[in-house]
């Protein structure tokens, strides 16, 4: 197949894709960053956080679930799209309880990094300060729902990579929350392991390994060294 047949443009730049690839995966493979939180290359797309929204031939849609199509005009960094993304991230911040200054994940947190990337300077909306249950029952792993953004990455990773199927999303609407798949609903009654993929893929500090924290000094943390887009973009 010729190259033009399998090409779309992302903010004017040509991106080659393989048949069946989503806009997100094609963009990432080509070294272009589209901000995202619930997406992870290794796992089936979920399309729920909507941070990766782009405009495809005039229509807004989540790039992680939209198939790439030949000749499509995809806009990602248009000012109105960036503004909408910033609002989505603000919504995630006010939905839960995110206290960056003393969070163990600070500097290594994708929610925080994406917020910086989008130039989010405040939350602007009223904080909800919800009361959410923490699960510290397991000797090695802690689940702090305050920091959960319902991205379902742990659900997918536990099911598809760890083969354990330990998590699920339950509740409805603003009461949506992560549940643990055990008779007590507690992590202590699961076979979760500190090395599970489910913990590694958590974009925030909702799933943490106990007795590990603040390991790198400020200035040397993951996103101190380079902004999140640098991890994906070929131009850096």
């Amino acid at each position: 197949m010729s190259e033009t047949k399998n090409t779309f443009t992302l903010d004017g730049q040509p991106v080659v894709f393989e048949a069946g690839q989503t806009i997100m995966n094609a963009a990432l493979a080509a070294g272009h960053y589209i901000p995202h939180l619930c997406h992870h290359r290794e796992f089936k797309p979920h399309g729920s956080c909507k941070v990766c929204t782009v405009r495809v031939n005039g229509w807004l849609s989540a790039s992680c679930t939209t198939p790439a199509s030949a000749g499509a005009k995809v806009e990602s960094e248009a000012p109105d799209i960036q503004e909408a993304r910033r609002r989505i991230v603000q919504m995630l911040f006010i939905e839960g309880n995110h206290f960056c200054p003393f969070c163990v994940k600070s500097g290594n947190c994708q929610l925080q990094a994406v917020a910086y990337h989008l130039g989010m300077e405040d939350t602007s909306l009223p904080h909800r300060f919800p009361s959410r249950a923490m699960d510290a029952s397991h000797p090695d792993v802690v689940l702090d729902r305050d920091r959960c953004i319902n991205c379902s990455l742990c659900v997918r990773a536990s099911r598809d990579a760890d083969g354990k199927d330990l998590f699920g999303l339950s509740g409805r609407g603003i009461d949506t929350h992560l549940v643990v798949n055990s008779s007590t609903g507690l992590l202590k009654d699961t076979n979760i392991d500190a090395n599970d993929r489910a913990i590694q893929v958590c974009p925030t500090g909702a799933l943490l390994v106990k007795r590990r924290g603040y390991e790198q000094p400020i200035g040397e943390r993951r996103f101190d060294a380079q902004a999140i887009e640098c991890e994906f973009e070929s131009k850096y």
Binding site: S48, K50, M91, I94, E95, I149, L169, G173, T176
Partner: peptide, 16 residues
């Protein structure tokens, strides 16, 4: 009340 809670803009947006 009726938002299913799947996506951020509806889950949080309807609350805001």
């Amino acid at each position: 009340h009726e938002s299913c809670g799947f996506c951020t803009p509806c889950r949080v947006g309807t609350t805001v």
